[in-house]
Nucleic acid binder design. Sequence first.
DNA 1: ATCATGCCTTGACTTAAGTCAAAGCTGATC
DNA 2: GATCAGCTTTGACTTAAGTCAAGGCATGAT
Lengths: 245, 245
Amino acid sequence: MLNESELASWLHTTLLFRDLSRSQLVFLLRIAQLQTFNKGDLIFQEGGEATGCFVIKTGRIKVFKMSPTGKEQILNIFEVGENFAEIAALDGKPFPASAEALEFSELLFFPRVLFLDLLHQSPDITINMLISLAQHSRHLAGVIEDLSFKDVPQRLATYLLNLNDPQNDAHVEGSHPPTSPTHVLTLDLTKSQLAAILGTIPATLSRAFYRLSSEGLIAVNGPKIELRDRDRLQAFSQSFTQSDS
Amino acid sequence: MLNESELASWLHTTLLFRDLSRSQLVFLLRIAQLQTFNKGDLIFQEGGEATGCFVIKTGRIKVFKMSPTGKEQILNIFEVGENFAEIAALDGKPFPASAEALEFSELLFFPRVLFLDLLHQSPDITINMLISLAQHSRHLAGVIEDLSFKDVPQRLATYLLNLNDPQNDAHVEGSHPPTSPTHVLTLDLTKSQLAAILGTIPATLSRAFYRLSSEGLIAVNGPKIELRDRDRLQAFSQSFTQSDS
DNA sequence: ATCATGCCTTGACTTAAGTCAAAGCTGATC
DNA sequence: GATCAGCTTTGACTTAAGTCAAGGCATGAT
């Protein structure tokens, strides 16, 4: 069915399955189906019946809501090794959001019923699942905080700092770890997509970029963003605003 | 330590522990501590170190974020039988939000380490926990959708319909189930608190109430709200708006 | 009964951000 | 190398919603 040895050792690097035995991993592969999607392919749609849970082998997936008039709010973007669509797989209710491939992606798909069996059989997986869901929930709470407390330029600043700061070493192109005087990062999203992450529209995002640039906090060159003053950017991202009672 | 027989049978009505055996329930009570809080008491604060997980025996708890300037965003209000603060208990990172008692409340508290042991020992609880977390995540996704797509009057309409419509028979005071020509509900929150749920401030909420009233969709009398036209209210709650690109 | 506190509402004002449409870019294709 | 499509930016405009402050209304205490 699948290239077992290769996939099994890859599964080991995954959040959900990292601490399973080799035999458990091979068993997993009996349940999973490998599905591939091209850039732009819809994986499932909000409101659709829950089918199962996915783990990303390659590619990137955006999970989003769409308003009746077509405004998009991205809830999360998932990368290699991460899992998504657990919520619907768990409770069997309709998908709470839609999912689409941002690039060519290979996904391991676990049909819902088999996935639930799996949980009942492997407490380890269940606990990992729990931790994963907890992380996703934390992220959602953060999105709410940003939407409720911050204006668009602040949300943009927050996003850029998150991309750059943490162990998130990807995207960073600046000097070497210890002392990097300037920090340049490259967006791996279109600005329209970034707007949908920040809960706004491209026109407004564009003005937010202008604002941060004109204050000397960043310099923008296409998808390359230089953080010129991380400290002030940090301060800006949590400064008081009028949109905040 | 605690009144075991009473508590054990009550635990049985709880989401988390509903399908446990009597002996498991009694074991649970060895771990749990009963804590009581008065109205307005802070249970834990965002950013504080994770202590453990709570189940509500009596009372109501609001979980919320507070902005630097003091704007409050309520993430969820939990009622009897529900559990909260699982996220921090699971991953051990700081609390993502604060919690406060809305009224006198008795909580069963499970210290984090013991709680984690519990999960490792009882797959049933772990699965229930997963389902519970999935529900909470769904709710957060809904909050994001509302904040991103709807203006304040629409969020208010959505909230009122949710209070009234579903199996949520509490709050409803109108005629008897089959044909209730008008639906009157009573808010069990102050309007300031409702504003914090809807991601706005009291002044704006007040104008939203006026708007819905003046269009004949509802009638407000203090905390009593009559839904005068559920169909139009429903339509209004998802109508197109300018705040939606 | 009166006072005071807290909650809610109202008014006048300001502003962030969405709308719509036009014009720039950029990169891909033929 | 020219054209085309899609993304991005800009401009002029509108509006939802926050700010601040004042006034009303109620409840509960002295």
